[in-house]
Amino acid sequence: MPSDSPSTAALDERSLYLRRLAMRGILGPNRGHVGATLSLMEMVRVLYDSILRYRPDDPAWPERDRFILSKGHGCLAQYALLAEKGFFSVEALDDAFGLDSFLGGHPERGPIPGVEASTGALGHGLPIGLGMARAARLRGAAWRVFVMAGDGEMDEGSMWEAAMAAGRDGLENLTLLIDYNHIQSYGPVDAVQPLEPLAAKLESFGFAVAEVDGHDVAALESALGGVPFTAGRPSALVAHTIKGRGLPDAENDPTWHHKARFSDEQRAAMLAALGGT
């Protein structure tokens, strides 16, 4: 198996803990995008643990790196990290999606400290991130922009419009991460709208591309610690992941893309799988 295939090794305690945090935002409201939340967890973990520069007590700190979750439906993973890092309380996760909660089903800039762009409609994060990267370059600022997209999201033409422009501009302060879990809403990416050869496509648009096991923390740290992969070019990290990773019932099952009304048995199984009670 190539080294960039998604690992099926047991998740470490921190990955399990972060999943339990994210699940509070799903089991509380009894609904949510389970699959994406779990496939991109190690990527947001590594970003917030090791890569991004930020200040939880000063979310608008001008020198912070900008992270845009373009596939906004995976927001509970980001919320878990933001809460754990102190941008807001962990307890807020229990009321996610609630009538008066500031945590909605997609990230919103403004209400949620640490969120740089309101996403949810797909195909918006890379153009916005491109504009931010351009702003940093114009100002001579050292901060960087990281945009995480879904594989299904790469069906959107706007992503490729932005990719073309990023390549032309040689924006080395821009990194695109793709959560390549191979399942979009309706079914397998390879059946609905194949993306291959994805890495070669991005390369041809001007990105320096690396592929990685999107659940391998050390490999992600190494890859993301090395951006820009090539001076003078934007970077793209194609991360091979497993949708629903960590919940045996959900893994690679399109019906867990968005799930609601969990049975008692499902709740118990989810918590047990994640080492909770």
Partner: peptide, 16 residues
């Protein structure tokens, strides 16, 4: 590429 143009403009506007 109007979609990218407006998105990029918004990104720049958010940065001042």
């Amino acid at each position: 590429a109007e979609q990218n143009v407006v998105g990029t403009a918004a990104g720049m506007a958010l940065e001042g």
